[in-house]
């Protein structure tokens, strides 16, 4: 089996400061990788470099495209990269309002990606949007409501529906459960887990919440000061951390 994503030597500097330094890994189809670390550890910088939101200073992000096989998304043309981010890629923001159009109805939000790739049949777009609302547990009768009328958890679920409607193969998630109530988090995690399996999605999840990665991620990458300090199977890294920083991180989690 070939990797879906092959990342080699990604570095990003902010002047003299390190954003992230020399990060390399492979991600296989259906695999979920978590990136953990404290604020400022470079995990969001890395995610943004991978997703094409930031241009890395060095390195390659090779993605197994449907048509041409492995392509470096860092050096590919901007139209190609933007096309990729509308079709095979998805990005779930921490704050739903960064990932949603707040002045457009739920149906329009979900339908946008379909229309962006050429769907021109209103009835079919609406049917698909309604179907996706159902899959993220939003009632069909809310299809014409704007996200401003939704709760935080619903907005986040709407953002997920909007992202997954075109059947992407790789999803980037930046603190997907951040800022949500614990009970809402649980529901969201359950939903994400089901969708990941059902759609055989590959995902990269950035979070500082170790409970989130334990439930969602197959593998873990621990970052500190822009460097990857430890990688491995999620439960192994959490239960038998090797690096001092990881040990500190794991032992700092409050028990309930």
């Amino acid at each position: 089996m070939n990797p879906l994503l092959n990342v080699g030597g990604i570095s990003k500097f902010y002047g003299h400061r390190i954003g992230c330094k020399d990060v390399s890994f492979d991600l296989y189809p259906g695999e979920v990788m978590g990136i953990v670390g404290e604020s400022g550890s470079g995990k969001s910088t890395l995610l943004n470099c991978l997703a094409g939101h930031l241009a890395p200073d060095t390195g390659a992000v090779n993605f197994d495209t449907r048509v041409d096989g492995m392509r470096d998304t860092v050096t590919m043309s901007e139209p190609e990269r933007r096309m990729l981010s509308r079709t095979d890629w998805a990005f779930v923001h921490q704050h739903a309002r960064d990932g949603l159009r707040m002045n457009v109805s739920a149906g329009g939000n979900v339908g946008e990606r379909l229309m962006a790739v050429g769907a021109r049949h209103y009835g079919e777009i609406r049917d698909q949007a309604t179907d996706w609302l159902g899959r993220v547990e939003i009632n069909a009768d809310r299809v014409d409501d704007r996200p401003t009328a939704f709760s935080g958890g619903m907005q986040q679920r709407l953002q997920i529906a909007r992202n997954l409607v075109t059947g992407p193969r790789l999803v980037f998630m930046d603190e997907p459960t951040g800022g949500l109530d614990v009970s809402v988090q649980a529901r969201l995690l359950d939903l994400l887990r089901g969708l990941v399996r059902e759609m055989n999605l590959s995902a990269i999840i950035v979070t500082h919440d170790l409970a989130v990665v334990r439930l969602l991620a197959d593998r873990l990458m621990v970052m500190k000061d822009g460097h990857v300090v430890e990688t491995g199977l999620t439960d192994q890294v959490l239960d038998d951390p090797q690096h001092g920083y990881t040990q500190l991180l794991v032992s700092s989690v409050l028990q309930v």
């Binding site: 491995g232 199977l233 439960d235 192994q236 239960d239 038998d240 090797q242």
Partner: peptide
């Protein structure tokens, strides 16, 4: 046992 399962390294 945990090493066999890969939970411990």
């Amino acid at each position: 046992m945990r090493m066999i399962y890969g939970n411990y390294l």
